[in-house]
């Protein structure tokens, strides 16, 4: 079945909060998208309607869906997100979505490990909600640089690590994963975060023969598979577009030796 993609030109912002030193959470009223959005899919936002700068839309993972509301979690990083961070409740955004291929949930698996690094926390809210909806138990392993950058994940069953030890276990999220895997019986891993982290998580999973899905990031133009701008190299050596063949891929389909795009 064809997935229904919509352009909503004026989705109202319901709330917009600072949730860490660098991250913000924004909730939009999107009844037409809320009903069909799947975990791992993304929204393509036009941040400056009517102005040529920033020009291109920006892709953001769907963080969560509650009723008619769809939220995203983002880091203020460049010109686009800086402008977005100034927007107030009541203002509207031009949204295209839901886009891309999300996470596949295998209900036969015993443990469902959600591995997030930094802003890789973004897609985990809806993934955890979907797992719970299927009577499965999500476990979040969440790594951040420091307590200042920690976003309260809002997911029960969460272990935290920080690079400077200011919250949770000192170290990288991969060490939480290795610890957890020691006592897992039949796990599935869902990961999102920076490329080096994803590469490490994929390596651990491949070595232990554990199915692993990764959500990738890329610069995008069209967001629908037309322009071929956002490609990554897959394990067959072919380029595949992140926007429509991903952003979630089976980790074995990716060539992890390529330079990261972002």
């Amino acid at each position: 079945m064809m997935k229904k993609i919509l352009q909503i030109k004026n989705a109202p912002i319901l709330f917009h909060r600072k949730v860490s030193s660098c991250a913000r959470h924004i909730s939009l009223s999107l009844p037409a998208i809320a009903g069909t959005a799947e975990p791992g899919q993304f929204l393509h936002l036009r941040i400056s309607s009517g102005s040529p700068s920033p020009l291109l839309r920006r892709p953001f993972s769907i963080n969560d869906v509650q009723g008619d509301r769809v939220s995203i979690l983002y880091e203020v990083k460049g010109a686009g997100t800086k402008l977005l961070s100034k927007m107030l409740p009541g203002e509207t955004l031009d949204v295209i979505g839901p886009l891309g291929m999300g996470f596949d949930i295998d209900p036969q698996k015993r443990e469902h490990l959600l591995v997030a690094g930094g802003m890789g926390l973004a897609p985990m809210g809806l993934l955890a909600r979907s797992l719970k909806g299927m009577k499965l138990k999500p476990e979040l392993l969440y790594g951040c640089r420091s307590s200042a950058e920690l976003v309260k994940p809002g997911i029960t069953g969460c272990q935290i690590s920080s690079e400077d030890g200011s919250c949770g276990k000192k170290g990288l999220v991969t060490s939480l994963l290795l610890d957890r895997l020691r006592i897992c019986r039949d796990p599935a891993v869902y990961a999102c975060g920076p490329w080096p982290m994803l590469k490490a998580v994929a390596g651990i999973c491949h070595k232990n023969n554990i199915p692993c899905q990764v959500s990738l990031e890329s610069f995008m133009a069209c967001g629908v598979g037309a322009c071929q701008g956002c490609v990554v190299k897959n394990s067959d050596g072919n380029y595949v577009s992140v926007c429509d063949k991903g952003p979630v891929f089976n980790s074995r389909q990716i060539d992890w030796d390529q330079d990261c795009v972002i």
Binding site: L56, F219, M220, G229, V232, Y239
Partner: peptide, 16 residues
């Protein structure tokens, strides 16, 4: 096609 990154936003435009 070419190796990525393949696109980049610039002032009021984009490179591909």
């Amino acid at each position: 096609g070419n190796r990525p990154p393949r696109i980049c936003e610039t002032s009021c435009g984009m490179l591909n």
